[in-house]
Design a binder for these strands. Structure first.
Lengths: 254, 254
DNA sequence: TCTATATACGAACACTGTTCGTGTCAAGCT
DNA sequence: AGCTTGACACGAACAGTGTTCGTATATAGA
């Protein structure tokens, strides 16, 4: 019980992130002691730098400490956990999203735009969406995002229950899509090269399957391997949003 | 290059799982040498047992070796990798799925049923869906599942391109849904209890948020936290399948 | 100037996946 | 029957991981 007092120890800072903001504590009257002490912002910044260049798998406490010219133990003065660090990264990432003012006429483009922003953020830091899946649902930054998405859907006339569940589904899908992309990327990076296939080689493998056991896969190998860029992503989002438009407007829940 | 010859070494066995099946090699004429040697099936069985009772996080090579009364090195005679073990587990899991004969009139219930089966398998082995996300797309057992799903959708009149992408989206969502559930379960298990919330406590926290910043979240805290059992799962699947029904039938691709 | 104390960090612990080299035992050949 | 062969099992070790303990340091206030 020696080395942490009062306000700035990481456990309390973490708890504050999940608590309703307390206006009277916002003053933050304590100036920093050192001339150049390691701050949480600095830790988060360099961590995001590591993830952006080397991927989330490379973000170890030692690697991060090395990037800050220190040892791993020093990080635990600013961060409770690796999980806590993950939360901070996702929080920073969510804070970068711009949430549009809801426009009832354009709710579909708006919700699609928010999801695309989130997707691009996830892909900018490959593999970080794994941390997003593990987040507690009470983090303030992530709740800011879901609040914004909820506002868009409600303005568009989607029924509240459908809107709530759709946000969950959309966030889950975006995270999974980016996680899968990151895993594929990483496998392409350091695995023995023979094991990873490009689209054409994959299509060739599919057509080479025995036609009696895999008739449809063989016949439609082209469709199964199709999709440049984010075509699959756009398709799935359109599927869910269109489903919402047909189901959610004006009808009772479910 | 001393200790592996001919056919049964794990690297070739793994490669065979991703290659079209070779009928003339199916004889497997070599009987087992020992009286009770460790077999791959035995390894997979005990691994699934460990995952079912203690979760995927607990499935370490040492833990698995201990369950087989041996050391970790012995496992590498039957398994290339931990990734290879993961593939074997997912393969075993996919082999347990029963794929219905496609019925054009009931394609929606059929595809929903396959997804529900997969969900139940994933949840039976908590956290294993993480391994499913990392799988190479050429594994024969997983392709058997997507072949079956493709057959159902095509029989239902869904356009081939929409069917192919929808299968991808459905598999991705099911895996992510179960992964999130497993992560929440594990957090509830060994984390400091205060950090995990039940539905009512979560709703209370949401309503306690400042109404200026989170108006919709506060107002619809009930809807946001609603959903017993697999309500959210059913909702999302219905969303995607309904979207498919409206979009995919009879129309050109996309 | 001197003390109090918040911060930084080297060293260590208990883990992880994986490999090397050796030991052991059953099968096939002479 | 005896011997060789080679597939299998496994102890020990290596390079990593997250995390904690105790100590050293350097600053802020008296």
């Amino acid at each position: 019980m020696s080395s942490y007092s009062g306000r700035v120890n990481p456990r309390e800072r973490r708890a504050a992130r999940h608590q309703p903001p307390n206006p009277e504590a916002a003053a933050d009257p304590r100036p920093r002691r050192r001339k150049a002490p390691i701050t949480v912002e600095q830790v988060v910044d360099t961590a995001l730098g590591v993830v952006a260049t080397e991927g989330y798998e490379a973000l170890t406490m030692r690697r991060l400490a090395g990037a800050l010219d220190t040892g791993p133990a020093s990080l635990y003065a600013h961060v409770v956990n690796k999980a806590d660090l993950d939360e901070l990264l996702i929080g920073r990432l969510c804070a970068a999203l711009v949430l549009p003012e809801p426009d009832p006429a354009a709710w579909r483009e708006q919700i699609r735009g928010v999801c695309a922003q989130l997707r691009d953020q996830y892909l900018k830091y490959p593999g970080i969406s794994r941390a997003a899946l593990a987040m507690a649902p009470t983090d303030l930054e992530t709740m800011r995002v879901s609040e914004g998405m909820l506002a868009i859907l409600l303005a568009g006339g989607v029924a509240p229950q459908a809107a709530a569940w759709a946000i969950d589904a959309l966030l889950l899908y975006v995270a999974a899509y980016c996680l899968e992309a990151a895993i594929a990327r990483q496998r392409a990076a350091h695995e023995d090269a023979v094991w990873v296939l490009d689209r054409e080689e994959l299509e060739r493998r599919l057509t080479a399957l025995p036609a009696e056991a895999f008739p449809h896969t063989v016949r439609h190998a082209g469709e199964l391997t199709a999709g440049e860029g984010h075509d699959r992503f756009d398709f799935t989002l359109a599927l869910m949003i269109d489903g919402l438009a047909h189901r959610g407007i004006g009808e009772p829940n479910r």
